[in-house]
């Protein structure tokens, strides 16, 4: 599978260089991702015909849904120039824990209200990060590294295992499917709403401009502080939605349970070609990126690879994709 991906990258390199904006290559990234996805699917299907089935689609849908929603939040933060939000595990776990607790109450609130509170808590989490970043004026990577440790530690003092009643409406929804998992459709809506908002609205364009260059954005009269709040709180909405769905599709979890998601989210954002230095990136490309990561994960199981080899493969794919992307960018800026 790695070879498939490299092939894709080399082919992309030899293709005529695009004359798009300052080294953007969304088209190539999209082609590379979709090509790699097709190759993974074709190769796996040829060797293991069972792979090509509706069941596989559902499995992949579940795997990519929560990662997908979180990566929208992460991408917004990266594009806005705030580099990385390392507090995603805590940002997801806070609403998830609150939702599980409220659902488990002897006399639970209406589900819609619980969902709203969950999403609101995600926004609160984003707001806390934004508050610290804008007040202390220190790099968000470090702020969120710190707040994640604090947040997870405080949550760990509150509970060891949270359980979600299997017969609750949210669990019914979270585990159900309509062709694809319900939670996958929610992810699709999140992506399809976020992408045009970022690209075509005034605030969205300001956000991207801030990520491109703070001085330039300021000279245009954009409030940088406001943009930081906007980025973190919008990402917080994503974390809140993801947290609610996480609680709806995971019958029990502990505070550390979301740590492994962070790596997948960062991998998806990088694969989607979002530039770490801000200002550039496409939300729509998160779809093929997340799909590729989830498909590879499922395909590896068809090849009978154990957990250890799965990690090795996923890491290798990430490094190769990054190296290819970096190489491509180096050539296009030369």
């Amino acid at each position: 599978m790695t070879t498939a991906l490299t092939d894709q990258k080399t082919r992309a390199v030899t293709a005529p260089r695009p004359r798009t904006l300052k080294g953007d290559h969304y088209g190539i990234t999209a082609a590379a991702l979709l090509g790699a996805l097709v190759i993974v699917i074709v190769v796996t299907t040829v060797l293991h015909p069972d792979f090509f089935s509706g069941r596989t689609l559902i499995a992949i849908g579940f795997t990519m849904a929560i990662t997908g929603i979180l990566s929208v939040g992460q991408a917004i933060i990266t594009i806005s120039g705030a580099v990385l939000d390392l507090s995603i595990p805590a940002g997801l776990m806070l609403p998830a824990w609150a939702v599980a607790t409220m659902l488990g109450a002897s006399n639970p609130l209406p589900t819609a209200l619980i969902v709203l509170i969950g999403v609101a808590l995600g926004v609160v989490w984003g707001g806390i990060n934004a508050l610290i970043v804008t007040t202390l004026k220190i790099n968000p990577i470090i702020v969120t590294l710190g707040t994640n440790f604090i947040g997870i530690a405080i949550l760990s003092m509150q509970f060891t295992t949270a359980t979600v009643p299997g017969r609750s409406e949210l669990s019914m929804f979270g585990n159900g499917s309509l062709l694809l998992p319900n939670i996958w459709w929610v992810m699709l809506v999140v992506v399809l709403v976020a992408a045009p908002l970022l690209r075509y609205t005034r605030s969205g364009r300001h956000l991207t401009a801030t990520g491109g260059s703070v001085p330039a954005a300021r000279s245009r009269g954009i409030s940088i502080r406001g943009m930081r709040y906007l980025a973190f709180c919008t990402a917080g909405i994503c974390y809140g939605i993801a947290g609610v769905l996480f609680a709806g599709s995971t019958s029990n979890f502990n505070p550390m349970g979301s740590a492994s998601l962070l790596l997948s989210v960062i991998a998806a954002v990088i694969l989607a070609g979002v530039r770490m230095d801000g200002g550039r990136g496409s939300i729509l490309l998160l779809l093929p990126a997340c799909a590729l990561l989830a498909t590879v994960q499922t395909a590896l199981v068809f090849f009978g690879l154990d957990a250890a080899m799965q990690s090795v493969f996923q890491g290798a794919i990430l490094i190769i994709a990054l190296a290819g992307d970096g190489y491509l960018r180096k050539r296009s800026t030369r």
Binding site: L84, L263, I266, A267, I270, M276, S311, V312, Q314, G315, A316, I317, L318, I319, L322, A323, G324, D325, G326, Y327, R329, K330
Partner: peptide, 14 residues
Amino acid sequence: FRADSIAATVGMLT
């Protein structure tokens, strides 16, 4: 290849 160091080493970590 000029990959981002934080991101590439996340891959190595995996």
